[in-house]
């Protein structure tokens, strides 16, 4: 059993135990005619503040607040636990009040974006690792420019060596745009290797019209096309990894505001005190 599996089992068990304890507490409160709503509400609010503080923690790396790995683990399991506490608190999937419905939607979207992020952070890194070496996201433009320059050098060298422009014409017509920059938003949403395969097929087709010198250059272009496609894949996937946080964190602060207002209202309009 790997370390990660053991950790997952341990944390999941702790989460289940904690939720079972909360359920027991809620039932005990209800059986004494006490309302558990205030208790579960405070628990939820505390959980939301704790989850939001993960972002603050990342901005204050110099403080001795524990490692980011531990924080992430707490963030994930406390976040999942809030779904259970929310169910105990709201008792309905869809509150009928406007403000509470807005709060519920914000909560669902925040939790949903968190789960999406969890899925992305667990699936994208292996995909990237399978494709190529580790590439820093901020350096991808520089690498892309480097590949483009190498491709242009290859084409110019082949023209100079062979005196033919067949490869250069093909580059201008089909490969220039590919090497010129990043891919479009469709590729960001659903990256595929279709374009790379199409270009390679065309390069394969054009080989028979190339001179021997040009064919050597073409071989190098094959490598550069693959390299550029890998860079695009890294760019798209790493961008997704960064963009989902926009939604998650943006929703988190809106959720904090709504939850605080809801708590204020719950206290002020609470009718359970004699």
């Amino acid at each position: 059993m790997s370390f990660f599996t053991r950790r997952r089992i341990r944390n999941a068990s702790l989460l289940v135990l904690a939720l079972a304890g909360i359920v027991w507490w809620v039932r005990a409160r209800e059986q004494t005619l006490d309302s558990s709503a205030l208790g579960t509400g405070y628990l939820l609010l505390a959980a939301v503040f704790f989850l939001a503080s993960y972002n603050v923690r990342k901005k204050l790396p110099f403080l001795p607040l524990g490692g980011s790995t531990a924080w992430l683990q707490w963030h994930i399991y406390v976040g999942i636990g809030t779904v259970g506490v929310f169910a105990l608190h709201a008792r309905t999937a869809w509150p009928s009040g406007w403000l509470e419905a807005l709060l519920a939607v914000t909560f669902y979207l925040t939790v949903g974006s968190g789960l999406v992020g969890l899925y992305l952070t667990r699936t994208i890194p292996p995909q990237l690792a399978r494709v190529s070496d580790e590439i820093t996201y901020e350096r991808i433009p520089a690498f892309r420019r480097q590949v483009r320059r190498q491709a242009e050098e290859v084409v110019l060298e082949s023209v100079a060596a062979s005196g033919a422009t067949t490869l250069a014409d093909f580059y201008t017509a089909r490969l220039y745009g590919f090497f010129a920059g990043a891919r479009g938003w469709r590729y960001l949403v659903r990256p595929t290797s279709a374009l790379r395969r199409a270009l390679m097929r065309e390069m394969q087709d054009v080989r028979r019209y190339l001179s021997e010198q040009e064919q050597i250059g073409c071989e190098r272009l094959f490598t550069l096309v693959r390299r550029k496609d890998d860079l695009d894949f890294h760019d798209a996937r790493q961008k997704v990894l960064k963009l989902w946080l926009f939604g998650h964190i943006g929703l988190t602060y809106a959720l904090v505001l709504l939850a605080v207002l809801h708590g204020l209202l719950a206290h002020a309009f609470h009718g359970g005190v004699a």
Binding site: T32, D34, G271, G272, A274
Partner: peptide
């Protein structure tokens, strides 16, 4: 129980 030590129960309790 804990919230009605004075033997009083708010209407909203039930």
């Amino acid at each position: 129980s804990s919230n009605h030590k004075r033997h009083e129960l708010a209407c909203a309790t039930c």
